[in-house]
Design a protein around this nucleic acid. Structure first.
Lengths: 155, 155
DNA sequence: GAATCCACTGGGCATTATGCATAGCGGTCG
DNA sequence: CGACCGCTATGCATAATGCCCAGTGGATTC
């Protein structure tokens, strides 16, 4: 669970050059191959590393528009709405939250016009009372984890 | 840019079993090794595949609390605020948006109490007028891309 | 219709990485 | 003090990689 400095360096290295193997990583870090292998195994069974899935850019797939929708749900309809949203490919992520809305989801679309279609599909469902959408213009900080890893490693 | 069915199957396979190599992938897909290699190269130079970075779970790192904060920014202070937020490790992601707020950011924290510290650090900056935070309770749909890939591949 | 292009196939080859096992070497802790 | 643990270092058989090439089938072009 706790991450030491070597784990942090390993994660950072993997994040920067994901295609390197265990051997190459051990050379870069200046430790033995077995050590890297053991750390990697531990990080994965710990759940710190969930996987190495390909990082796919929706924009390159033809979905350059991203938006966040806050949804208000009719009482007791939560699980129906979850199931409904899970069937929409353009829903990349869904959270239930505290605060003014009940759910927050990340959407992508082919264009601003297409976003209307996506939103209609998302909110065209009985349990959803209201939706408010924020279209993403810029993404100054893309999803990142390294700064947090460094903080977790350096304490 | 356009994704065909083989590309889709390859992406799906890589997402499910990221550690397999080119050879194994070619066996699974029933195509020649060179084909898989060529597709992978193309997908990467296309930008469809950004990389294969390790998927790190903040919760396993000791940050089990996730929240989304909507920020209202003083006119003209945008770039200062962006720079400020980029220095906070707990800010995993930052977007500028249309709508009621001006920015939306994803935060993590060690606990609900710790979230207060993070928020204080985030909003303790001159250009930020107001912040409203939604704490994530559940994550029924974790960040996913496969359904979208399938849709992009199957048209 | 014929020539051309292109992606895919299937094979070969040298180099490199992997998985697995071994033994030695400091540390820490009961 | 002895046991344990993580790291180092090395060896070896197996497997994957990067790179090469010649051939084939389908689509495009002239």
């Amino acid at each position: 669970m706790a991450i030491d400095h070597l784990d942090g360096a390993l994660l950072e290295l993997l994040a920067r050059e994901p295609r390197i193997g265990v051997l190459e990583a051990s050379r870069r870090l200046g430790v033995a191959r077995g050590t890297v292998q053991a750390r990697l195994d531990r990080l994965q069974s710990n759940g710190v590393i969930r996987g190495f899935g390909p990082d796919v850019d929706p924009a390159a797939l033809g979905y350059p528009v991203t938006a966040f929708a806050t949804l208000e749900i009719k009482q007791g309809q939560g699980s129906d709405v979850r199931a409904h949203l899970a069937t929409v490919p353009e829903v990349l992520e869904l959270h239930t939250t505290t605060g003014h809305g009940d759910m927050l989801c990340r959407l992508v679309a082919r264009s601003n016009a297409d976003l209307q279609r996506v939103i209609d599909r998302v909110v065209g469902f009985d349990g959803i009372v209201r939706a408010s959408t924020a279209i993403v213009m810029e993404n100054p900080v893309p999803l990142r984890i390294i700064p947090l890893v460094k903080q977790a490693a350096g304490d």
